[in-house]
Simulated scan of single mutants.
Amino acid sequence: MSTPMTSEFDGKQHDQATPVNEFVETNPEYYARTFRIIGEQTGFAWTFNWAAALLGPVWFGMRSLWKWGLPFVLLEVFAYIQIARGWFGDLGAEALDRIVQIEGTLAFRKEQLAAAIEKQAENVPVFERAIASLEQAIIDIQAEAVAAQAAGMKIALAGLAMLVLVKIVQGLLANSILEKRYFNWLSDRSLASGLSTSRTLSSAGFVLLTVIVSVVHYAFPGRFTTLAQFPTTDRIRRTAIEWVENFFNWVTEKGDWLFSVITTGIRWVLDNLELIFVDTPWVVVASFIILLTALSAGRRAAIFAAAFLAYMGFLGFWEKAMTTLALLGTAAVLSIIIGIPLGLFCARRPRVYAVIRPIMDFMQTMPAFVFMIPVIAFFGTGKPAAVVTT
């Protein structure tokens, strides 16, 4: 009777191991056993992944776990920078540069002192005190440079300790993070799984590039100016500006009829709203706004609305406020006219939505004044341009 039970248990183990094999691809027995240990623990499961500890962010990138990989990249880069600064960097270089600057000032003050002594001027003691102060500053900075250079080994050891600590943390967290990813993958097989050559190469290349460039830049400042300043020239900038100007001129010339039609439509809506809000007696407009506020938000909100309307009226801002309200109303009407059909179309066309969404996300992150540049180029200045910008 024991044989069938054993066979059944082995079959269950095989069924459970099959998804793990497909998910991890490498060392499936280790991960199946580790995932089982993690699942049996109610708290944090103390497991250690040597591959994650040694490879660090590269391992997380290989497993498509960049949510964790990127912070570890930053931590490791900082540690490598400290190691390179401590062992190879010239920590006293900045202090020596300051000494060179002070020596130039000191030489100038000595010339002034010599001229003052020759003329027997009254400000000789002033120059003497200034020279003494500069000489003392040089002595202090020299001591600072020596101390900074002597602290190099401490900085390197601190960076090494930080690197080891980060490696240990990565090794401790890796299995738990991958186990959560595994269960998410079981419910959504579209998530990346296994290992691929492209992910491995891209992860290794990204991490190596980040580490090498950062270490060279911060540990050896000033040696590679290309790393500090983007490699461009005045000719490239002028050419780019010329291209942009030519593009705007071409669009303005070819699309003049379209922008005229849009401007006419905006002007028509805006004129009608201004007729409603500005030319209508203030009592009617205020009563209408207060009533709508009371119906939609309650009595307390209506009281606040009445107070704000009274504030604008008594201070002489009523007409300007109503003009602004007409501008906002026009922008809202245009947004509804364009947004609702476009939203329905995107809902039925996922490919169109995939193109529109990043554009909308980008536009939401931009401040409103950024859009004023193309709007003024296409629509000129005035209220229609203000509506489009809004």
Rank of each mutant, 00 (worst) to 15 (best):
162 M>T: 10
270 L>W: 09
216 V>S: 04
378 F>G: 03
211 V>A: 06
42 T>N: 09
227 L>D: 03
209 L>R: 05
169 V>M: 12
261 V>H: 05
196 S>Y: 08
349 R>Q: 10
169 V>C: 11
386 A>E: 12
53 A>W: 01
163 L>K: 14
233 T>W: 05
46 W>N: 06
70 L>Y: 09
238 R>V: 06
3 T>F: 10
377 A>P: 04
249 N>S: 13
146 V>L: 09
198 S>A: 14
358 P>M: 11
5 M>Y: 07
233 T>C: 05
304 F>A: 14
137 A>I: 00
71 P>W: 04
123 N>L: 03
336 I>Q: 06
284 V>F: 15
170 Q>E: 15
138 I>L: 06
159 G>D: 03
204 A>V: 09
318 W>Y: 12
173 L>N: 01
104 G>L: 09
6 T>L: 13
85 R>D: 00
87 W>Q: 03
240 A>F: 07
29 E>H: 08
207 V>S: 03
381 T>Y: 10
20 V>A: 04
293 T>H: 01
14 H>V: 04
173 L>T: 08
61 G>M: 04
240 A>Y: 06
122 E>D: 13
43 G>W: 08
229 Q>E: 10
376 I>Y: 15
256 D>H: 10
93 A>R: 11
190 S>L: 02
364 Q>P: 00
337 I>E: 02
179 E>K: 10
287 S>T: 09
154 K>H: 11
88 F>M: 12
254 K>W: 10
127 F>W: 15
361 D>L: 14
176 S>G: 11
52 A>V: 02
195 L>N: 08
104 G>A: 13
88 F>C: 05
60 F>H: 03
332 A>N: 04
282 W>D: 15
189 R>A: 06
176 S>I: 03
203 S>N: 03
90 D>H: 12
203 S>M: 02
288 F>M: 14
251 V>F: 08
198 S>W: 11
30 Y>S: 03
216 V>L: 14
276 I>P: 00
122 E>V: 08
354 A>S: 15
253 E>N: 13
301 A>T: 09
166 V>D: 01
355 V>Y: 07
269 V>D: 05
330 T>M: 05
101 Q>I: 11
256 D>V: 08
112 Q>S: 11
61 G>C: 06
163 L>G: 03
227 L>M: 12
189 R>E: 08
161 A>C: 09
126 V>A: 11
58 V>Q: 00
202 S>P: 00
348 R>F: 09
204 A>I: 08
304 F>E: 15
21 N>L: 07
333 V>S: 05
307 A>H: 01
382 G>D: 05
327 L>M: 07
16 Q>E: 14
342 L>N: 00
153 M>G: 10
33 R>P: 00
352 V>W: 13
311 Y>L: 12
41 Q>W: 04
250 W>C: 05
87 W>C: 03
316 G>E: 06
31 Y>I: 01
56 G>P: 02
42 T>F: 04
366 M>H: 07
122 E>G: 02
166 V>W: 01
19 P>F: 03
362 F>Y: 14
13 Q>G: 07
47 T>E: 07
143 A>S: 12
356 I>A: 11
81 I>N: 00
261 V>M: 12
186 L>V: 01
21 N>R: 15
61 G>N: 04
303 I>G: 02
